[in-house]
Design a protein around this nucleic acid. Structure first.
Lengths: 131, 131
DNA sequence: TAAATACCTATTGACATAGTAGGTAAATAA
DNA sequence: TTATTTACCTACTATGTCAATAGGTATTTA
């Protein structure tokens, strides 16, 4: 399951791409267009700035902006940054996770194959594919 | 993310398939082999019985048993019964979910495509593929 | 009658999710 | 300078899910 963090982040990116006019776009406008709580979006958008996905500028005339061309963003990157991991099971999501049953695990190969499938799907989609 | 409900259910099914000898297999043995809390497994296995995936029998000599041939079980069916849904977002998982933004949603087609991908992957795998 | 088993109800601690509340800092325009 | 607009910051909260644990009852066989 993809949480609101990843889903809302994606919608913010799309909104920024569609409404790009060279200047910064206030979160108030994004929240209104997307019908998402502005207060809650603040948290998510802050993380997007920290992750280097977008630019933020304070003060009057401030807001947010993409820092790359829309076709240079990959959906998988955005989702993975916001969700932490897209892996279906803990033993693949946590690189440090040590499972004593690993060698004997009958299901691991399936999770690994599925993990690759998911990764390839979302890394094969660009932001521009959603516009 | 697939929770322990789905993952453990799959391991129970594999264990039942591998240790099938015509009679019922006590949960105690499954829990020991799989190194999973028996008390916790009770909850999961009870749901598997209610869902019609396996048979349970009380009393001495009782335990659990597959009620179909291993090749007649599909992984997707087992996971979906235990996890409730494999859909990545609420608007696809809940059939009754009414989203006012549905028609305008830029991301929905991607979630739908991904949902189909996930469904096809797990419904293309049989229990016997894991043995 | 004793043992082994499934089955039942209730509870718990930890954590994540999806927010809300209220403030501070920074930039611009009057 | 001052007011306004904006991002940014810390803290809090209600609800729910996850992964169990605890202790009992019903059922079947030897």
């Amino acid at each position: 399951m993809i949480s609101t963090r990843g889903r809302y982040a994606l919608r913010v990116m799309i909104d920024l791409a569609e409404n790009n006019n060279g200047s910064y776009i206030p979160l108030k406008d994004i929240a209104a267009r997307q019908e998402i709580s502005k207060k809650y979006l603040e948290i998510i958008v802050k993380d997007m700035v920290n992750a280097g996905l977008i630019l933020g500028a304070s003060g009057k005339g401030g807001g947010y902006q993409l820092c790359r061309k829309p076709e240079e963003y990959v959906v998988g990157e955005i989702l993975e940054l916001m969700e932490g991991s897209l892996s279906p099971v803990a033993c693949l999501a946590d690189k440090s996770y040590e499972c004593t049953r690993r060698a004997a695990c009958k299901t691991l190969p399936m999770w690994e194959e599925f993990d690759t499938l998911v990764h390839n799907y979302f890394y094969g989609k660009k932001l521009t594919d959603l516009l």
